[in-house]
Design a protein around this nucleic acid. Structure first.
Lengths: 250, 250
DNA sequence: AGGGCGCACTTGTTCGAACAAGTAACCGGC
DNA sequence: GCCGGTTACTTGTTCGAACAAGTGCGCCCT
């Protein structure tokens, strides 16, 4: 958080959270904020652009900016890491590796992880809990070049993300998430302690480094009574997309 | 699309789509693009910032930008409007109003739609189809000030969004989406032609105008074999957030 | 051959300025 | 009292410039 525009964005977020600017209220004009913080108008615009992307404030040319919401979305790190997310909410996360094995990479693995040849990948099946209650089954496939570091992580490690950063300096930078719903089935029902026909919220995701190199892909199934997802969007930036399912030949 | 930086962003998107810049390839430097398009570096930065937010390209200080994906996410309008989305995919959307009635606004309606008093709201239950197959049950609550325009829309109208824009000039600008999974239940099962225990993908959303005024909120339930959702995010911008479900006292 | 250093290149940050375009409030005429 | 135009304010767009900070490659030395 060295950049001045990030500092200003954070101050504005706090001001909105603290109620200094209530929902529906008007933010000061750009020139006013520039004067208050002693920066140019361009720097202020970078700050408010961040809040706009987060869905906190709305803006129209000619009119003052409006506060739309008060709570900001989670940081990327909190979304990536189940443990960090739980800690930020004041809950305790647990995790246990049920199975772990190296397998020959399938065509799907090669495509999703952009592997050169079809060498080996590392499959890990984890069950994760929130305050002792099991809420998530996680099936992750790691690329070969990160697999050794993952294998050194102990089975009941709370935060794999933090462990990998400590060991290798690896930073997750981009993610793509595909969301749908499935029935639990026999295996997941047993692991989560729910009925076989219970609906689960499935998130299939691919995570890459800042250089665009895929690190892992995962099939996560959440108990929908315990966890759900929210997305903000606007005319200016729309990261959420609807897709025709495979059953429809999309 | 008057702004030069938007034109440049669109040209870059097309170039990536057409394979001029393949996935994994390096984009030209900012100064190079600035020269090619005859604009300043700042304008190029606005263009590439848009693509970065869309998850198409990645960027790190000091290194050239990398192409991460080739297909861009849908526009806000396509997400908002089921009909426009279907048309963009070359499919035919249908829609039928099953029930429509004015009701006294509940406390939830007042909160979500930021109504002043607890007057009347308009409830509409629609079933929507893709190429004749029923895929979505939509329960929408409209604010009182837009209800008259909605009531003038015919029951089998394909695109309510387009109709409301024609009639009132109303533009939807911001959306918040809460995603989880539920079992169909007797009513939805009958409407969609699936089994009572089938999992459905539920999206509860609130849409507002550019001025931050809520227009509608809706409970949409999709057949997960027909439709699912994808989200892009990064360290820089993260619109996706995980939330503890109500069953956990979140 | 291998490792370390330095340099050229690239992105990130910030400033100041100017004009275009849209909004909202005020004011005057009917 | 209501309607419409004028006007001050605000956001959007774009330029040019300068410096900071990080990357990656080649070169040199060992």
């Amino acid at each position: 958080m060295a950049a001045r525009h990030e500092e200003i964005a954070e101050e504005l977020r706090r001001a909105i959270d603290d109620g200094e600017y209530a929902v529906g209220a008007l933010l000061p004009a750009e020139t006013g904020l520039a004067g208050r913080y002693g920066v140019s108008r361009g720097t202020v615009r970078q700050a408010v652009a961040a809040l706009t992307a987060e869905g906190l404030i709305g803006s129209r040319q000619g009119a003052r900016r409006v506060v739309l919401a008060s709570r900001r979305s989670q940081s990327f790190e909190e979304l990536r890491s189940f443990a960090q997310w739980a800690r930020a909410m004041g809950r305790r996360a647990s995790g246990l590796v049920v199975a772990r094995e190296r397998r020959r990479a399938t065509a799907e693995d090669v495509a999703r992880l952009q592997l050169r040849d079809d060498g080996e990948v590392l499959h890990v099946l984890r069950v994760r809990g929130l305050d002792g209650e099991r809420v998530l089954v996680e099936r992750t496939v790691y690329a070969d070049w990160i697999a050794p570091a993952v294998e050194r992580v102990e089975d009941d490690c709370e935060s794999v993300t933090a462990r990998l950063y400590q060991e290798t300096g690896l930073v997750f930078a981009y993610g793509k998430h595909l969301i749908d719903a499935v029935s639990a089935g026999a295996r997941d029902a047993e692991l989560l302690g729910v009925r076989r026909t219970s609906p689960l919220l499935r998130v299939r995701r691919v995570t890459t480094t800042a250089a665009g190199r895929p690190v892992e892909w995962s099939d996560d199934r959440y108990r929908p009574d315990a966890v759900n997802f929210s997305v903000h969007n606007s005319i200016g930036s729309n990261p959420l997309a609807r897709q025709a399912g495979p059953g429809f030949g999309g």
